[in-house]
Nucleic acid binder design. Structure first.
Lengths: 221, 221
DNA sequence: ATGGAGTATATCGATCCGATATAGCGGCGC
DNA sequence: GCGCCGCTATATCGGATCGATATACTCCAT
């Protein structure tokens, strides 16, 4: 449920250690907000135990070069350069432990499973996340995701309408229920636009027309 | 966090036992959905331990009348009548254990605290719940609640806009972020309408004008 | 140098959810 | 009549997440 977020981030952005993952999730995509350490570290441990990610302990020892950060050369980029430079100027005992995580093939397959995610769907965060990573999904699965979500929202709207139908509600409760229905309709409209764009990008006549998905950006602003 | 919902329900609807509380929360107000037993029963136990509610074991014994459902006369209404009628037609050993909960003065005071709830505010469910029970709040506190929420949403919108500003996002991620910003603006507009209604209902000139809050129902249709 | 701010990992307790266990009861069909 | 299904009803368990907190190292300003 945030395994998906972690795997997606590792897939798209490369290396990353716990603290960075949290930062990117809080800043990068405005979706997940929060994601406290109390959930992040257990999740990373879980993923590592499941073989979906590999952790390389990147606390460089006192000896200068002697790479104990061995496989896969240039992952950490300019950031690691700065790091080792600082270590050179200041005294040894390279900074803190710091585990850098890398996604495995096992993890990539798990990521694909979580993305389609037929098993248990519902909540809005989960959907937003899946859609944000929809690029890694084949076109039909993308469409299925959108339509499944649309169905869920429609059902929810019917429930809320039923709840709002009873007139035992006072002004404030009614305002809340009405607004909820309104927001749901708004979301459904957005999904409809996305679905239409997705469909027209896959029209049989325009089989090999790249760049056709350029106008997806919902109804924002 | 759902203590508020339970207390509010007991305050407005009277008696109620666990199963009924869940039903009313799922159907009655479309807000909270879910509220599984796994959270409800612990919450009830918690509230009972805190002295906010009193539980009367209402498994009526074999003897017909002999009220062990003693204080506060006509709480359970027609529902209890049906219940006892059925017991009369079928054999004794009145059905299942069934604890009926009643709110105490202690609970009412706790309810008031949770309603204003300066301590930790944020999440949307909590706000929706508070607003739905806003009737039990004095007018200034009501206004404060709305404005606090408005401020939070404005801050969140700024964050989301910042996140959307970076152009490293692909079409789908952008669609998600844009829609999130859009939904936030929609919510803020709704709050603005509520705030205005609330303000105009409290204009100094129209001090004793009841019924002035009749047009609150947001933009819902 | 002292101490605050930022980086970094980890754990704790509380809350909540979904699934599941248990059990009384009414009605339906055959 | 009798078995089974489904509704009412309470309770517990494991898993996920959050917020707070502990710990430690580094950098920079004073």
């Amino acid at each position: 449920m945030l395994d998906l977020a972690i795997l997606g981030l590792l897939e798209e952005r490369g290396d990353l250690h716990g603290y960075e993952i949290r930062k990117q999730l809080r800043e990068g995509l405005g979706l997940l907000a929060n994601v406290s350490f109390g959930s992040l570290y257990p999740a990373l441990a879980r993923l590592e135990a499941a073989g979906a990610v590999e952790a390389t302990e990147a606390l460089e020892p006192v000896e200068p070069p002697a790479a104990p950060v061995p496989p896969t050369g240039s992952l950490s980029g300019e950031w690691a350069v700065l790091r080792s430079r600082r270590r050179a100027t200041r005294r040894g005992r390279g900074r803190r432990s710091r585990k850098v995580y890398r996604i495995t093939d096992r993890g990539r397959s798990l990521f694909a499973d979580l993305l389609t995610g037929q098993g248990a769907a519902d909540d809005p965060r989960s959907f937003g996340l899946r859609l944000a990573f929809a690029r890694h999904l084949p076109a039909p699965a993308r469409l299925a995701l959108l339509e499944r979500r649309r169905l869920q929202l429609t059902e929810r709207l019917a429930e809320v309408r039923t709840a709002g139908g009873q007139d035992a509600l006072d002004v404030y409760a009614r305002a809340v229920v009405d607004h909820m229905a309104d927001a749901l309709q708004h979301d459904i409209g957005w999904l409809d636009r996305l679905i239409e764009t997705e469909r027209s990008a896959a029209t049989p006549g325009a089989a090999l027309a790249p760049g056709a998905t350029a106008a997806v950006g919902g109804g924002a602003r």
